[in-house]
Nucleic acid binder design. Structure first.
Lengths: 214, 214
DNA sequence: TGTACATCAGTGAACGCGCGTTCACTGATGTAC
DNA sequence: TGTACATCAGTGAACGCGCGTTCACTGATGTAC
């Protein structure tokens, strides 16, 4: 029986150089994302472990776990809007652009379910949280509006081109958002449900009031 | 200064009589519901406290907290289907019946948000949970199907009456369910969002393919 | 009718665990003189 | 060019807490003889 080599549990992380303390902040966010991706609990201690750092080190950068989550939600909204716009701009035709936005929204929710939940699943405007941090909540709401604006504009273009009978684009975009959100959530939570293939197509067609060519 | 009367912390609960041990089971479920309604954590110990019982007493009736939640979800699905049917049957006209079902669905989700979350928000078919308790998951899924069936039928009646252009009622009911779910969730989570008044009406009209008389 | 016993419906104390948070500290790096 | 000092970026030990779970027990109620 040979003696097993002691695995170096600590990958010998060493303090960041003088002015670079902010680097750990990013490492903490990355560690939290990694934990969520693995479906593990995100406690202050588990985050610290994942970041190969002692628990109190977190306090230098965040007030508490909620503060970390808020930072992640901020980034996530930016990422969502960026991906919606990017996918949209792959296309020229108004309907293709709208459908690309819808597809991108669902992809985002599917590929980063925990992040998506963080954005729209309760942290956003949880009654108690509102009173405690009204500024943060307002900011998140504004970022959600940015995402919605992409949908509003896509529907608007379809209407201009005579492809949609939408007259109140904001109102219809809201309905479409609601539909996409419901689909994103349920597809995630009810995986064994026999989802009809065209559900995504149906939602976009119906809620954006597209003329039913297909 | 008068001596404050010691409040009797224990409302002197006493063991149920011989054959009636099952009564505590109901009390545990009620205590859990009460905790959720108050937005408090539902741990084995907090549930026991709320039920005025020692923690180990729970084990006589449930394996763990998840088991309690599963029982609640069962009851909740029954209650949902019952309320959908009941509200539907208040009306005669097909469209009124369909809209009553949608309204009842949203009311249920609004009035019992924690219960609704329990039903559709992750416990239902959480990947790990499926493998651990396939039977329970299958049962919940079947109960969800019962609720969906009410929507399918309501859309079918509208189509028969020439009010809807739906040809695949199941497919359209699925889309409507998705929309209602998204609305229920987002209205709860994004309370400060300026919801257009007609969102509910829009969703039902569009997704059930109702001819737009209004 | 009386009594020993079994069963039922729980209780109370104890355990080990991971958690958030505090505190005094450490060791490297920059700055003043 | 040297040296004392301040600051920065953390560490390590300790705390009290609530949690799930176990274990031996208790006291009332029914049952056998």
């Amino acid at each position: 029986v040979s003696v097993a080599t002691e695995p170096s549990a600590q990958p010998e992380r060493r303090p960041n150089p003088r002015g670079q303390g902010a680097r750990l902040r990013e490492e903490i966010l990355a560690a939290t994302t990694a934990l969520m991706a693995d479906g593990e609990a995100t406690t202050l201690r588990s985050i610290a472990r994942r970041a190969s750092v002692s628990a109190p080190a977190i306090y230098r950068h965040f007030r508490d776990v909620d503060d970390i989550m808020a930072a992640l939600a901020d980034d996530a909204f930016d990422a969502l809007v960026a991906t919606l716009v990017q996918e949209r701009d792959q296309h020229e035709a108004p309907e293709a652009r709208l459908r690309a936005v819808g597809r991108a929204y669902l992809s985002f929710a599917t590929q980063r379910p925990e992040l998506y939940r963080l954005m729209f699943g309760g942290v956003w405007s949880a009654p108690a949280a509102i009173e405690r941090r009204p500024d943060r909540d307002a900011r998140l709401r504004a970022m959600g509006m940015d995402a919605l604006a992409v949908i509003v504009e896509a529907i608007g273009r379809c209407a201009e081109a005579g492809l949609s009978s939408s007259t109140d684009h904001h109102r219809d975009a809201t309905a479409l958002w609601v539909g996409l959100h419901g689909y994103a959530e349920l597809r995630q939570n009810a995986r064994l449900f026999p989802w009809p293939e065209q559900t995504e197509h149906d939602l976009v067609t119906a809620l954006a009031r597209l003329h039913q060519a297909t």
